[in-house]
């Protein structure tokens, strides 16, 4: 039998945000117009992973608005405050808190005015999905739009902003001892592979990704990050490699630089783990990088489980795996 199957596990932790005493900030402006529609000026870039959607969800939740009435303005040095880069798996973790702060303050302003309108204390009120309720009551007493119009009419402040500093002190320069990061992400993956011992070709049959999101603010978006991260890990483990010839890149076309296609990426089973993080928005953690880190070691360990040979250099191309098998055969250490 030339095809051998194996299973491998990879685990990791990942310091979320910047650490090392680097500025690690989030910030946002928020404003509600007279008709109850809200604009969030969020400085966090969305590369497709969905921070704009997370910002809309957090704002809608905290203000008590319907998400369809939230508009998020993308990062712009003229219109949005500085929210740091979208990197380090930090956007949800850091910007989520900043938006939470801004939205809480706006919510407070609205409830204060509503309390005046209905002659009650603001703590007796809450807002959901665009309506204001007396706590524990089933029917609303006003819409947020009515309250917002009232705030504007009275010349009140119907805007706010939030700032969150997630910076941490650097570790000790000699020992690196210290609290390196504000928080960490956690993940483990299982990979199942099939190794063709005639060709060295490794096929990934399945990946199971257990990724700790703390609290999945948008589960489908989390799954998208998990699956995309694993696919990138498959590429790193098996296919993708820049080849330099005396420093000159030869892989200067997608004909030579091989990215996994829909035929190369296996089924990726998402197991969203939720271990609440007291420092994250609603307990959420960063997941973008945790989702990709374990894939490669899991695949390398699965190759070992399949053929009893450890590949120590990446990527595990057919040439490299085949050569390792041949060397093991020559040493009499490989059983076909």
């Amino acid at each position: 039998m030339t095809k051998k199957r194996g299973l491998g596990v990879g685990s990791m932790f990942y310091g979320i945000g910047y650490g090392f005493n680097r500025a690690d900030i989030g910030s946002a402006y928020i404003e509600m117009a007279d008709d109850g529609t809200t604009t969030v000026y969020s400085g966090a870039c969305d590369m497709g992973q969905g921070i704009m959607t997370v910002v809309a969800q957090v704002a809608a939740e905290v203000v008590g608005a319907n998400i369809d009435t939230i508009r998020v303005v993308a990062a712009d040095t003229t219109s949005t405050p500085d929210a740091g880069p979208t990197s380090g798996s930090r956007a949800t973790f850091v910007q989520g808190i900043a938006v939470h702060e801004a939205a809480s303050d706006l919510h407070d302003q609205l409830m204060q005015t509503a309390a005046g309108m209905f002659e009650c204390e603001k703590d007796e009120l809450e807002a959901h999905n665009g309506d204001v309720y007396l706590k524990d009551a089933n029917s609303p007493i006003a819409s947020l739009a009515e309250v917002a119009a009232r705030v504007h009419l009275l010349g009140g402040r119907c805007a706010s902003w939030g700032w969150h500093d997630n910076s941490t002190a650097d570790v000790d320069p000699a020992t690196s001892q210290g609290d390196a990061y504000a928080s960490y992400g956690w993940a483990s993956q299982l990979a199942e592979v099939e190794v063709d011992t005639e060709t060295g070709h490794v096929k990934v049959l399945k990946i199971v990704s257990a990724t700790d999101a703390g609290k999945a603010i948008n589960p489908v978006a989390v799954e998208g990050q998990i699956q995309g991260g694993a696919a990138m890990g498959v590429g790193y483990a098996l296919y993708e490699q820049h080849i330099l010839d005396e420093g000159v890149p030869r892989t200067d076309s997608l004909a030579f630089y091989l990215v996994p296609t829909s035929m190369d990426v296996p089924e990726i089973q998402c197991e969203i783990v939720e271990v609440y993080d007291p420092k994250g928005p609603f307990g959420a953690k960063g997941i973008a990088e945790p989702a990709t880190v374990p894939t490669t070691p899991a695949i390398l360990n699965a190759i070992y489980d399949a053929i009893g040979i450890r590949i120590t250099d990446t990527p595990a191309t057919p040439e490299r795996v085949f050569q390792a098998i041949q060397e093991a055969r020559a040493r009499g250490e490989f059983k076909d």
Partner: peptide, 15 residues
């Protein structure tokens, strides 16, 4: 209490 690594390994084990 936010340390989640054991939970992820256990999830793989259960799977």
């Amino acid at each position: 209490e936010g340390c989640g690594i054991e939970a992820t390994v256990l999830r793989i084990k259960e799977y």
